[in-house]
Design a protein around this nucleic acid. Structure first.
Length: 109
DNA sequence: GTGTTGACCCCAA
DNA sequence: TTTGGGGCCAACA
């Protein structure tokens, strides 16, 4: 009952991401005290990509603000569209003004 | 039970 | 500056 808890923590933080903001896998992993397990966060997204979980995975990007996970969506344009719908500008598959829209769970939480 | 893959991150040459 | 390699942990074949 530990790994499941880790995923729950990830979902919890992702759900807390404010509108118009994005976060990173590394930041979330670090906030959970597992800075070296940043890949698990991404994995948690795949496993947690469920409607009832209500996890806005599109608001989570990699350290460079690149939409690495868009390929896992039904359509590659889905993720970008959702982000732009939140007021986030996407240029060349990466977040524009990334440092401005970046939401650090460790700082803001 | 072993080997490969992956929505990652960091450091060195 | 770009490129390459190591580490981390979990799921899959």
């Amino acid at each position: 009952m530990k790994t499941n808890d880790f995923y729950e923590q990830v979902y919890q933080i992702v759900r807390l991401i404010p509108n118009g903001r994005v976060s990173t896998y590394g930041a979330i992993a670090k906030a959970l005290g597992a800075a070296k397990s940043s890949r698990l966060v991404g994995y948690a997204m795949i496993h947690g990509h469920d409607p009832r979980l209500n996890v806005p995975c599109h608001r989570v990007v990699n350290r460079k603000g690149l939409l690495t996970g868009k390929i896992h969506y039904n359509t590659p344009n889905e993720m970008q569209r959702l982000l732009e719908q939140d007021g986030i500008i996407i240029i060349d598959d990466q977040v524009h003004n990334f440092d401005k829209v970046f939401w650090d769970p460790q700082t803001e939480l």
